[in-house]
């Protein structure tokens, strides 16, 4: 099978139409995963019982396939009267799945903070919530910018899973072209190149953020 350059260029606009869906899902899922993951980790630290419960939740999320979780949200929840649009299920599914991994990253980032920071916050009479938000979280972010960025790239690369629940993301729309034309190489290569470009962009953004966070600290 010859690679047809003209055909590859011709399908770019069609594939790019799905770009905004892919990006939207990736960005919302990254935010969702970070928010849920941070909540899981902070709750895990809040007490012994909560610790065991959250440990179980985090391990459960990480130990079951992301596809199984997506199918569950999409096909099983409606039996209990919860029917959500495919897009919402997709964002929710990826958020939950990656929250398990991000919780582990946050744990490492918080463990690396000197114990004296908690002491100082407590001694000043800051509430637990204020301590987490104003003292711990900013220092944690600085510790984990790089690994957190890696997971944001992973979230982006996981968006094609949402094709199974009919979210019109990029790989799916490329594959539609392939099915219609019986030409597989061009759509897959075009989609691959766009993903590569996006992933490198995210990595660069994270590097920039890391430099700025370090600069603020060492200024």
């Amino acid at each position: 099978m010859d690679f047809n350059h003209a055909f590859a260029i011709e399908i770019v606009p069609t594939i790019l139409q799905a770009l905004h869906t892919t990006l939207l899902v990736a960005v919302l899922s990254s935010i969702g995963a970070a928010a849920i993951g941070f909540t899981l980790e902070v709750t895990r630290r809040s007490g012994r019982l909560a610790g065991y419960a959250m440990r179980f939740v985090i391990d459960f999320i990480r130990s079951t396939p992301v596809l199984a979780q997506l199918y569950f949200l999409f096909f099983v929840l409606p039996f209990y009267g919860i029917t959500l649009p495919a897009m919402v299920v997709g964002v929710l599914g990826l958020s939950i799945y990656y929250s398990g991994y991000l919780a582990e990253v946050f744990k490492a980032g918080i463990d690396a903070i000197h114990r004296g920071q908690w002491d100082a916050a407590k001694a000043l009479g800051l509430s637990g919530f204020d301590t987490i938000i104003f003292v711990i979280a900013p220092q944690m972010l600085r510790n984990i910018a790089a690994p957190m960025g890696n997971y944001f790239v992973s979230v982006l690369k996981a968006t094609p899973y949402l094709a199974v629940i009919a979210v019109p993301e990029m790989l799916g729309s490329g594959f539609d072209i392939a099915s219609d034309t019986f030409r597989y190489a061009e759509p897959l290569v075009v989609v691959g190149i766009i993903f590569l470009f996006l992933a490198i962009s995210i990595a660069q953004l994270v590097r920039l953020l890391e430099t700025r966070l370090n600069a603020a600290h060492n200024r």
């Binding site: 004296g116 920071q117 100082a120 407590k122 001694a123 000043l124 800051l126 104003f134 220092q139 600290h217």
Partner: peptide, 30 residues
């Protein structure tokens, strides 16, 4: 805790905040 001040061997200033912000954070929040 708010009625007792404490000073530590390792200072324990908040490294991500300026000296002034270190001094205002708990005043504003607590």
């Amino acid at each position: 805790r708010r009625s007792i001040g404490m000073v530590f061997q390792s200072f324990n200033l908040f490294p991500h905040l300026s000296v002034l912000q270190n001094c205002t954070l708990a005043q504003v929040r607590a």
